[in-house]
C-alpha cells in the first residue's frame, strides 16, 4: 500500500503576500520531495476546538522546502497566520492526484489559469512544465491585489494579470484577458473559483482541448476515508454521473467531466 504520513514541519518563514494572503515556507523534506504540481497537504491546527485539517495547495517545493500560499478565510487559517519562524506545524505528506502531465512532450505549449487563491499551484506547475521544455503562459486573475506574479515569471511563464477592480493589469477575468491577447495552448490547466473553472473548461472545449481543473470542496478527513468532499463528474466511459472524492480522486478533474451547474 502507498505510505502516507503526518509529520511536524518547521516554519522557516511566514510573510504577508497581499491582503489576507500568507506565504508559508516549511522545512519538510519528505513532503517537498514527494510533491507534484496540483497536489495539496493537510495542515492541522493545535486548537482542540478546530478538529479538521485545512487542505492547502502546494505552491512550490524545492529541496527540503515546501511553500504554501493560503488565504486567511476562517479561524483555522487565522491560527496558521499567527505562527512564526521556528515553530512547527503538523502537516501531511502530499495528497490528491495533481495535474496529469503524462501526455506532455517537449515543445508543447501550456496555458495556465489561476484565480485568487487558485494562483499558488500554478507556480509549481509552471516550473515543472518549463523544466519539461514546454512553453508556458499563465493568466492570473485577482479581485483587487495581485500576488505571485514574479514567482510565475521566474518559473518561466509568460505572465499576465487581470483584476476585477482594474487596479492592476487587465480589468476583468484572467480568461477574458488571455482571450483578448489571443493566447492559446496545447494543454490547459486551471485552479480557482468554480465560475472561472467552468468558463475555462468551456473555452478549452471550444478550442478542442480538455482543461484540467482543480476543484475545491469542504473536506472532512482530507485523505479519502470520510467521503465528505464530493464533486459530480461524468467520466467519458460512464452513462451516469458519479460522485468522486475531491481529496482522493481529485482535486484535479477533466473540465469535460465536471458538472459545473449543479447548484
Amino acid at each position: 500500500m502507498e505510505e502516507k504520513k503526518i509529520m511536524m514541519a518547521e516554519i522557516l518563514r511566514q510573510e504577508l503576500l497581499a491582503k489576507g494572503v500568507m506565504k508559508l515556507v516549511l522545512c519538510a523534506p519528505e513532503a517537498a520531495r514527494a510533491a507534484r504540481a496540483g497536489q495539496f497537504v493537510n495542515v492541522y491546527t493545535e486548537d482542540s476546538a478546530l478538529l479538521l485539517p485545512r487542505p492547502i495547495s502546494i505552491c512550490d517545493a524545492e529541496g527540503d522546502r515546501l511553500t504554501l500560499v493560503y488565504g486567511i478565510v476562517g479561524r483555522g487559517t487565522q491560527w496558521f497566520s499567527k505562527r512564526c519562524a521556528g515553530e512547527h506545524l503538523r502537516i501531511s505528506t502530499p495528497l490528491g492526484n495533481g495535474y496529469d502531465l503524462s501526455d506532455i512532450k517537449p515543445g508543447d505549449s501550456a496555458l495556465l489559469f489561476g484565480g485568487g487563491i487558485g494562483v499558488p499551484p500554478m507556480v509549481k506547475l509552471a516550473k515543472t512544465l518549463t523544466a519539461m521544455g514546454v512553453s508556458v503562459r499563465a493568466a492570473a486573475g485577482f479581485r483587487d491585489e495581485s500576488f505571485l506574479l514574479e514567482e510565475l515569471s521566474a518559473a518561466g511563464a509568460q505572465t499576465l494579470c487581470a483584476t476585477d477592480s482594474g487596479r492592476e493589469g487587465y480589468r476583468g477575468t484572467a480568461l477574458s484577458a488571455a482571450e483578448d491577447v489571443g493566447w492559446s495552448g496545447d494543454h490547459w490547466f486551471a485552479c480557482g473559483p468554480k465560475p472561472m473553472l467552468a468558463a475555462v473548461a468551456k473555452a478549452a472545449l471550444a478550442c478542442g482541448k480538455d482543461a484540467q481543473v482543480s476543484m475545491e470542496e469542504r473536506m472532512g478527513c482530507g485523505y479519502g476515508a470520510c467521503v465528505g468532499c464530493t464533486v459530480d463528474v461524468k467520466p467519458q466511459d460512464a452513462m451516469q454521473p458519479v460522485r468522486k472524492k475531491v481529496c482522493k480522486d481529485g482535486p484535479v478533474f477533466l473540465g469535460s467531466e465536471v458538472f459545473f451547474d449543479e447548484r
Binding site: E217, R218, G228, C229, V231
Partner: peptide, 23 residues
Amino acid sequence: WAGNPSPRIAETYGGMLNSVGLQ
C-alpha cells in the same frame, strides 16, 4: 447510493457535522 449534495462537512467547536448520507 449517491448520498447527499455538497457541502457535506462543517466544523463545530470540538466536533463536526457531516451529511454524507451513506454514499
